[in-house]
């Protein structure tokens, strides 16, 4: 078959494997999950699918009535709203340092800050679990030099989430740092020279040259980082199992437990869709802002 002089059979043949895989193992499950979220699909339905009944929005309504869900949602917001900005800030500072003319050994620093990014999250969580250990952990040992008494980082609801955030920031900031470095290198040196001629100090240069010209990079980084942080799972799974007192239970961890521990799969699918909704909202806000800037 020809279409505008090209053999389109070939095009369809090239597309078939990937599209088959994506439609059957991605799009179909998305639709199925949507259907599941309005049924009472549970362990009995696993063997006999006809036992699942349509229940309308009651999974969603039950969730909104469940204090544990609000706890998980609140924890996730805490993790996202504290962790992501902290991570972005540190990435930006590290990138600016790496971009400074005063600094040598740049490849060493860049590689060092990047190492946690490529390592396995589960292994990293295992290491940090011991670093946070109350009696023998490195952190409490270091803090003892400045006179701070041992803290039960992962066992105290007040500190557990903060401990996870610190670890996540340590693990991830190198990634955005690389993107920021490239963004900084794209800023023409002449702009800084002009600013200096006008008598701008370091802060004014940053505020009036660096920040505005980095806006697009920062926007992209903000969105991907927020979305990534929304999906945190391995950190609490390995380090706290959502405790103590559910203070580190995340949305995805709750989804996993409801779906694959208690086999309340309809309920779990509803949680997954709420996560989807949150990510969709973040994306739409970003698109809106982007459009605004283009005009």
């Amino acid at each position: 078959m020809k279409f505008r002089g090209q053999n389109i059979n070939a095009a369809y043949l090239f597309l078939t494997p990937a599209m088959t895989a994506i439609f059957i193992f991605f799009f179909l499950p998305v639709l199925a999950a949507l259907v599941m979220s309005v049924t009472d699909f549970d362990i009995y339905s696993l063997g006999d699918i006809s036992r699942a009944r349509f229940v309308g929005f009651s999974n969603y309504i039950d969730l909104f009535k469940n204090p544990l869900f609000w706890k998980a949602l609140g924890n996730t917001c805490y993790f996202v709203l504290v962790g992501a900005p902290l991570s972005i800030l540190i990435s930006m500072l590290a990138a600016m340092a790496l971009n400074s003319k005063m600094l040598r050994f740049k490849p060493f620093f860049r590689l060092t800050f990047f190492l946690p990014v490529v390592t396995t999250l589960v292994a990293v969580a295992v290491i940090w679990r011991y670093i946070y250990q109350t009696r023998f952990g490195l952190l409490n040992y270091l803090l003892s030099f400045v006179g701070i008494n041992p803290v039960d980082w992962l066992g105290n609801p007040r500190w557990a989430m903060l401990a996870l955030i610190v670890m996540a920031v340590w693990k991830g900031f190198g990634y955005n740092m690389i993107i920021f470095v490239a963004g900084l290198q794209n800023i023409p040196e002449t702009l800084y020279e002009a600013a200096r001629l006008d008598g701008a100090n370091g802060w004014q240069e940053f505020r009036n040259v660096t920040l505005p010209l980095l806006a697009q990079t920062t926007g992209f980084i903000t969105i991907t980082t927020l979305i990534g942080y929304c999906q945190f799972f391995a950190e609490p799974y390995v380090m706290t199992d959502g405790g103590p007192l559910n203070s580190t239970l995340s949305i995805v961890l709750m989804m996993y437990k409801e779906g694959f521990k208690f086999w309340r799969m309809g309920y779990s699918a509803a949680i997954a869709f709420i996560l989807f909704g949150i990510i969709l909202i973040i994306t739409l806000i970003q698109l809106r802002i982007q459009k605004h800037h283009e005009i």
């Binding site: 179909l28 499950p29 998305v30 999950a33 599941m36 779990s268 699918a269 997954a272 996560l275 994306t283």
Partner: peptide, 17 residues
């Protein structure tokens, strides 16, 4: 546009399939 859908959404039906 499907790139906005998080993988977690597919996991329950995928497991059943």
């Amino acid at each position: 546009s499907a790139m906005v859908i998080p993988a977690q959404v597919t996991m329950l039906p995928l497991f059943l399939m």
